[in-house]
Amino acid sequence: MMGRYVARRLFLMIPVLLGVSILAFYVSQLLPGDPARAAAGRLATPEQLEAVRERLGLDQPIPVQYGLYIGRLLQGDLGTSLSSKQEVAQELRIFFPATLELLFATMVLTVVLGITIGVRAATSRGGWVDRAFLGFSYLGVGMPVFFLALLLQLVFAGWLRVLPIAGRLSLETVPPPVLTGLYTFDALFAGQWATMMDAGRHLVLPALTLSIAGISEVGRITRSAMLNALEQDYVRTARAKGLSERAVWLRHALPNAMLPTTTVIGLQVAFLLGGTVLIENIFSWGGLGTYAWKGIFRLDIPVIMGITLVSTTAYLFVNLGVDLLYTKLDPRIRYE
């Protein structure tokens, strides 16, 4: 049943991905002047130009060119960066792990803090924790991410000097042997505690900045879902059975409150993919966001399209993952 559902969802993803790829292909066609020259670089020699023209099939009609483009995409060829002359796919492999690590840390903070605070606020409804959280959630949702980043840098790195201001590792720290490209994990697998700590410390400020909005959202949803659940019949029954309040919250109310929370968490991922562009710049993170930003100011369309395609695909799979989580969380949902 589940397998069929996944297959159906994957099948439904095809028209969406096709639409995205048509859009990306169309945009790539908008490059000013000769696309071969654009792809080969302004300084290309005539031989290079010819090689590129042949490789890209630029003498073919447009539909054939689109076919070739899809063929190249399926082989993992996202084109060549106009400014660095490197393959976009290759560069993405360098930049992606940095962003993945940041997103991962942000999601952990969002989920753990968001749910914890939400539950606490619900259980002490009207109390000081609840009120403090309500105030905080306004701050979290209204605060521009880029402004918050600057303030946190100023306070924690500038005045208190307890956290590094930018970068992924201290200079004296040698990057751990590459396994996943995520420094904290690689260091953990290699048993380098000091390196892992260092990478972790560098993650704190950017991840905190990115997660504030998510913590507020997740916290609010968890809070209201918990309150809603606590009014339900099964909770009353559980209470009547003489279970402790804590057991009622955690075993009965929380699992049911997780459903709307999961939706919000899934939505967060999409916003984070965009948010990294803002944050990576401020924290000199050197990930996908920096790469995208540079690409835009260099008018490097293959780079921008590469990032768009990769992040869109990633986002679609995250959505699928969230939907699958639903089945785990709520046995009432059946997929056909």
Partner: peptide, 29 residues
């Protein structure tokens, strides 16, 4: 309990922050 994950995050924060208090080592570069 509900308090535990929060405590966990605070503990991690303390450990990460304390890392900065280590004496500065001489840089050779």
């Amino acid at each position: 309990g509900t308090r535990t994950p929060a405590l966990c995050v605070i503990a991690i924060a303390v450990v990460l922050l304390s890392g900065s208090c280590a004496p500065e080592t001489e840089r050779s570069y």
